[in-house]
Design a binder for these strands. Structure first.
Lengths: 97, 97
DNA sequence: AAAACAATTCGATAGTTATCAAATTAGAAA
DNA sequence: TTTCTAATTTGATAACTATCGAATTGTTTT
């Protein structure tokens, strides 16, 4: 287990706005699981009280921590959750009784 | 779900040294599950490259995030994991497929 | 080609944080 | 009561971060 890497993941989720951003991406992935084309960022940006530069910064942090993938679809940016990484985090937080 | 509270928990785990500290406390709780008297801090402090003031600071952060409880036993400080909070985190990170 | 839209980059700033050394408190042992 | 050990507090500093406005890049629409 790589403590550095995991700490980075937690740091990525440690800002309230960034955490909500992440959860929105997860939510989107859950609701459209079969047809999942990813989560359009411009739609999400409207719902937050922070500007595009900050959203962009937060997305970079989440990507850097490998919690999400992003991809350009023409004019838009779409985001998907990296479920493998989330599994890893859950594994780390499991308590063996 | 309280985003602020959860973000605080993630922040508490976002520093590598603090994460290892937390994991040590968990580990101790796991190995001595039945006889669990808590984890003695002075033993742990020796194993880290950081001084007592910093350990103290990190413990406060973990306590503040309600990830652990601490209690004085005479001269010593013992720590235990707040399993309810860990469960909450695991719940938040679950992805519904 | 021009205008419009989505997103990123840059530079700045106010606020936060990890860490230490020194001093202090609390308790146990001598 | 003096000494030793465990832990905390305080004050300082260097490093990092969230956010913004302005400027820029990339893509689509007109």
């Amino acid at each position: 287990m790589d403590t550095q890497k995991m700490a980075k993941v937690f740091k990525a989720l440690s800002n309230p706005n960034r955490l909500e951003l992440y959860l929105k991406i997860v939510e989107n992935q859950e609701t459209s699981y079969k047809t999942n084309q990813g989560c359009l960022m411009c739609e999400i940006t409207e719902k937050f009280n922070i500007g595009p530069p900050t959203i962009s910064h937060h997305l970079k942090e989440l990507t850097n921590a490998e919690l999400i993938f992003t991809e350009r679809k023409g004019k838009f940016l779409v985001a998907k959750v990296n479920e493998a990484m989330v599994d890893e985090v859950n594994e780390l937080l499991k308590i063996n009784k």
